[in-house]
Design a protein around this nucleic acid. Structure first.
Lengths: 334, 334
DNA sequence: ATGAAAGCGCTAACAG
DNA sequence: CTGTTAGCGCTTTCAT
């Protein structure tokens, strides 16, 4: 039931009913009796303001759009959950758009999202620079915040991880533990997240005076199949790495399975540091040493930025969670 | 930009612009010239009808609400993806609500969903019978379809799996392979999905003249922690099962890790049949024999039901995907 | 072939 | 303390 129907039932004007249900009866000095009548009747008839009328009037939809490349990817699922939970506090709902890692679909979705006049946009794009993305990001009137897959060269409001630092931390940790031959399972190297993380890894390796061996670096996408293929390539190398860093969440799943398949034991034969702390990371056997992104904090920040319509970018630091997938090895003097 | 602004720019009435953009210019015999002018200007200025005005007029929001207990759970993430993809074809968007397996939150979300006047509701509830859920499900005016966690005793439009049959298939397969001592990793036994699956398992075991040993049956929820705890209980039994069936997606993740932890090899020491085929199931080592739900088909059916506003319930059959996690054992004559 | 007007449900400005 | 009115952006009659 809507407000005017309720008003008719109670022989009141829509205005009065509206004022009561909007939660400001005292501001308009509505009598206690009336207030009570309205509230009770509203409850009884499940009456509530129609958000379309309300939105039209206020110029707000009460919804924000969330675009992800793959909701099936645990990182984005977690992100979506945190964002939804946070938005709920201000009675906003989340419209979910999944591009399936497909730029063409993403462009179409972006247009659809914008035409829906949402109150805000939290975008985790595929990672490719497109006209639609630029339009969204550069438009002063659209409260947009970019997450995860930032576009290199395009600066805009965003919430992201210091990916270089995170990659550096992972590699530095392995080096500290005596590893000298470090492999890397990458995602799509054309995306900034992946490139930055990898550059961090390379920096740490070089800084330690070690060499980067490209033959134990592989990866060309974020899908599980990509991860499996890359894992196989890395492990089929005659001279296996002593430690491997997986640069994204799907990577570790792929790698663990391939390792098991090849009968390679962790951490005895190969040590692992994995990007993205996942719910099962600590239950895994061995428990995985991970580079954890503060997903909750990042989600909250994104929501805050959208709400306040600031135009600032925030960068978070990843944390290395030490578990049991990295073994200490004796440094070989070569 | 909205239609009236565009109309002003072009010295046309909103009506004409609306008719062109609604895609029915010939129906109203709009001249080719005008049509072209409108279309081009709309493109240029990124003008599109405001969905709030449109919705208010048409009594539709162009959105359907999707409620899940946990988007982080791969099954629901996959479901969400399929539903979104399907809905997109009819230009509808998905409003995502995540109850976090919490009935109290679910009730609140349900109220919120309803008050938003959505065009349809696809609900995968926590699995508990609540006032709000009944209201939603029993209301003739709300196009609701229940999925996965049906409420026993409440019949309503739904799309679900023949869970008894699925459980039966899993157990029957193990028995065929010579297993006589079958353990079971359950979810929340108060939910119908879990109970039905378990009953199917029990039926197959009894039918084969074997006994159900409750000491190798455990589980009290759908979280990973619940799964780990249950796995430990099952495996710490002095008389270990020869085959284990996990009744939900999180269960297999928990079990695999605990098995590895305990140094139990699959399928040599213990065979496994797992509910829900997951992207990594086939890459796992050994590849997991699973009971696969036709998620895509179910999603499509749910969307179709919502669209056509039928009031029918559809039940799908699960398929056993044979892989390498079950070993054939010699039948012992006791 | 096009436009004017009404009305979807709501709230804010202006009465009283 | 409550009501009347206008207008948010759109589509659908009804006119021309």
């Amino acid at each position: 039931m809507n407000l005017s129907e309720l008003a008719a039932h109670l022989n009141l004007s829509v205005t009065t009913v509206s004022r009561v249900l909007a939660g400001s009866p005292e501001k308009y000095r509505i009598s206690e009796a009336t207030t009570k009548r309205v509230v009770e009747a509203a409850q009884k008839y499940h009456a509530a303001p129609n958000p379309l009328g309300l939105g039209l009037r206020k110029g707000q939809t009460g919804m924000i759009g969330l675009l992800v490349p793959d909701i099936t990817n645990p990182f984005f699922a977690q992100l979506a959950r945190e964002i939804e939970r946070e938005l709920r506090k201000s009675d906003k709902a989340v419209l979910l758009f999944d591009s399936g890692e497909d730029v063409k679909i993403e462009r179409k979705l972006l247009r659809d999202m914008i035409s829906r006049r949402l109150d805000g946009f939290i975008l985790a794009p595929v990672g490719v620079d497109t006209e639609e993305l630029r339009f969204a990001v550069k438009n002063e009137n659209l409260p947009v915040v970019l997450m995860d897959r930032l576009i290199s060269g395009v600066d805009c409001t965003s919430v992201s991880l210091d990916n270089f630092d995170a990659g550096y931390k992972a590699a530095h940790y392995l080096i500290q533990k005596g590893h000298q031959r470090i492999g890397c399972l990458r995602g799509d190297s054309r995306t900034a997240v992946d490139a930055d993380r990898y550059n961090g890894v390379v920096a740490a390796i070089c800084e330690a005076g070690l060499n980067v061996d490209e033959s134990i670096v592989a990866g060309k996408g974020y899908s599980l199949v990509d991860g499996v293929e890359a894992s196989r390539r890395i492990l089929s190398n005659v001279n296996k790495p002593s430690g491997v860093i997986t640069l994204n969440g799907q990577g570790i799943i792929a790698l663990m399975n391939v390792l098991h398949d090849y009968g390679v034991s962790v951490p005895e034969e190969i040590s692992i540091v994995a990007f993205d702390d996942q719910p099962w990371s600590k239950f895994s056997s061995p428990a995985i040493t991970t580079i954890a992104q503060p997903i909750g904090k990042m989600a909250r920040m994104a929501v805050e930025i959208i709400g306040s319509r600031e135009k600032e970018s925030k960068i978070f630091k990843a944390e290395l969670i030490e578990r049991a997938s990295v073994a200490e090895v004796d440094v070989e003097y070569t």
